[in-house]
């Protein structure tokens, strides 16, 4: 849940990037980190293995600016994508305000995408959230690769509820900020509705 501090006039929100292993969640955060002005970002923390696979989470705090005199901060987290890190994934979803599902567009990763999306829905439910009710967007990553699934098929399999969706290539940054903006906007609209 977002944290509203009237004393220091701050609002903090938590965004979690979810998706199968090696789909580009960490790469998304790295690109945001590289392209954000130093005064707007904190340190990026990656708890990863020696082979750069996320072990627990990546964390990137962003201070975007003020809305109605309140400093608006977004804390970006990624989960470890590999199937056997499920216990860690559950922990990171605690208190989430918005979710980005990063799908790997490559044909051979479709099963992993579907499995990860089911896992997301299930883990959210366990925390008392409904994926259909929280701010949520989908990113189809790796659109630059040759062996990719068509947009229509990705949509059919991974976005039946028609939430905002973005094509991306996280290594070059294409679609990365569009995705982030979209989920941030949904969170703020949700906050507004909440009262």
């Amino acid at each position: 849940m977002s944290f509203i501090n009237y004393a220091s006039r701050e609002i903090n929100c938590k965004i979690v990037y979810y998706g199968p292993g090696l789909c580009g969640k960490t790469t998304n955060l790295q690109f945001v980190y590289q392209k954000t002005a130093p005064e707007a970002k904190g340190k990026m923390i990656s708890l990863a293995t020696e082979t750069e696979r996320t072990l627990f989470f990546d964390f990137l705090p962003l201070a975007l600016g003020e809305i109605r005199g309140f400093k608006t901060r977004f804390h970006l987290y990624t989960v470890p994508g590999q199937v056997f890190y499920d216990a860690s994934r559950k922990l990171i979803l605690k208190g989430v305000d918005g979710v980005v599902f990063v799908a790997d567009s490559q044909e051979e990763r479709m099963d992993a995408n579907i499995e990860s999306l089911e896992n997301l829905r299930f883990n959210l439910q366990e925390q008392g959230y409904d994926l259909d009710k929280i701010p949520y967007v989908v990113q189809y990553n790796k659109r630059d690769l040759p062996n990719i699934v068509t947009l229509e098929e990705l949509r059919r399999e991974l976005n039946p509820t028609n939430v905002p969706e973005f094509e991306a290539c996280a290594t070059t940054g294409e679609g990365v900020f569009e995705t982030l903006k979209s989920v941030a906007k949904l969170i703020l609209i949700d906050l507004k509705k909440g009262r």
Binding site: I4, I11, G65, I67, R68, A184, L188, I189, K192, R195
Partner: peptide
């Protein structure tokens, strides 16, 4: 009591766009 001092109650799309 739906106290209206909540800062985001009257937030506009422009406010959100300005952030980015």
């Amino acid at each position: 009591s739906s106290d209206t001092e909540f800062p985001f109650a009257e937030i506009t799309d422009d406010d959100i766009d300005n952030l980015f």
